[in-house]
Design a protein around this nucleic acid. Structure first.
Lengths: 227, 227
DNA sequence: AATTAAGTGGAAGGACTATTCCACTTGGCT
DNA sequence: AGCCAAGTGGAATAGTCCTTCCACTTAATT
């Protein structure tokens, strides 16, 4: 994409060419390890797969969370693209359904991303800004689908987070053995979101509450103090 | 409940009185630790809370799985009781809905049980027999609710397992911070199970497939070889 | 009260992982 | 070509947890 070696990170002094090369090998290795094993994969495994020493990994990404946000930054772009595409769908309901299905498919395809979607990373403002931007698109998708009459009026945008948590549970349990199993519960949920279902529901958690939950999840998996 | 000290386990020689006392303290401690921290809580923490040495814990329960099945055996009785109660409900649909809600509530109340419900323990035949018996009741609950016309015809009993996996995900993520958050996605799912929703769904996993998944989950969390 | 097999606690050993350190290497510049 | 700051790998340290071991204690029996 970019040729400027400084552009890939926000640092003052550009990395030496070999260091930049190693950084990219680390990102590639981390991407596949996180996808296979989740966010708590051993750092040594990532360094080994990248073919560099662990010191190089820790010098470039002092905290696990730095590596995580660097790896999944591009995934958030995919997330955003899926949202944009859904909003552009001439059929509002189909756009909504497609968005939920595709995001759940992203979760199923990447064990790490599955968790990232239900955690927050306050130490990386850019990362959270991307998430917030995609979520704002989703709010529009929801509004449009409600206006079309197909999405029930009491659907709350926060429900997406609950869906992602539920799907993460299914994907974590069924994993590689039944890679399509998640489609069934997601199918049920999508039908429940149809406006033909009008029975009252328990109240959704507030946006702020979910933010606190997502923060807490990050903190418990990263036992080190940040900043 | 029982006064016969041999009755609480299937062993030949009864335990010495002090040993039996320690065994019960261990079970009580493990119950609360598993509930709070999940099935992977440190063994030393359990021994510490029981006020005994770790050796006592390992002598009585050589493998973690032995402790888990001993602790959750009584929970399976609750599970069974909930199923029996649901089947006895004069309103078949209300029985079905109540069963799903109550089992999900059991998951929310106990982090360990939440996982136990989606794992299998082939090394403990009695444990699996109890689970199978409760599941057979659930199959009847399902058949009766379908016959009443309120439960959609394409609901599969295996869907319960997927619901439990999804709920485990929600409960694990929202945890103590939002102890009621699970009610909303479960509410959605229950509405989706209503016969008014007739759109086709992705096929459910077979019973055998889910059995394999549940076995695999047990194996990965217990890295030791069994038997 | 004496005997002894059963039971006990805590230390020790071993596996695994995160993180730091430092002697050595190398890219980029003159 | 030669300098040197930037960069490197792997060893060393530290922390956590599981599991075993063994010298000591105690319940039950006589």
């Amino acid at each position: 994409m970019t040729r400027d070696p400084t552009a890939s990170r926000g640092c003052r002094t550009p990395l030496r060419a070999d260091a930049e090369r190693n950084r990219e090998r680390l990102l590639r290795a981390a991407r596949s390890v996180f996808a296979e094993q989740g966010l708590e994969a051993p750092m040594t495994e990532i360094a080994r797969r990248a073919g560099v020493g662990v010191a190089t990994l820790f010098r470039r990404f002092p905290q696990r969370v730095d590596l995580i946000t660097a790896v999944f930054d591009t995934h958030l772009d995919d997330y955003q693209a899926v949202a944009d595409h859904a909003l552009a769908d001439p059929d509002a309901w189909r756009g909504f359904v497609g968005f939920v299905e595709q995001v759940c498919a992203l979760q199923a395809a990447d064990h790490g991303f599955s968790d990232v979607l239900t955690m927050s990373f306050p130490s990386n403002a850019g990362f959270e800004a991307k998430r917030a931007r995609a979520f704002r698109i989703f709010v529009k998708i929801v509004a449009r689908a409600k206006a079309s009459g197909r999405l029930r009026a009491d659907f709350a945008p926060q429900d997406l987070v609950l869906v992602l948590m539920a799907n993460a549970g299914v994907v974590a349990a069924t994993g590689a053995l039944l890679p399509q199993a998640w489609r069934r519960p997601v199918g049920y949920l999508l039908q429940a979101f149809d406006a033909r279902n009008t029975e009252p529901l328990p109240a959704p958690p507030s946006h702020a509450d979910l933010g606190r939950v997502m923060d807490a999840r990050t903190r418990e998996s990263a036992q080190q103090c940040d900043q």
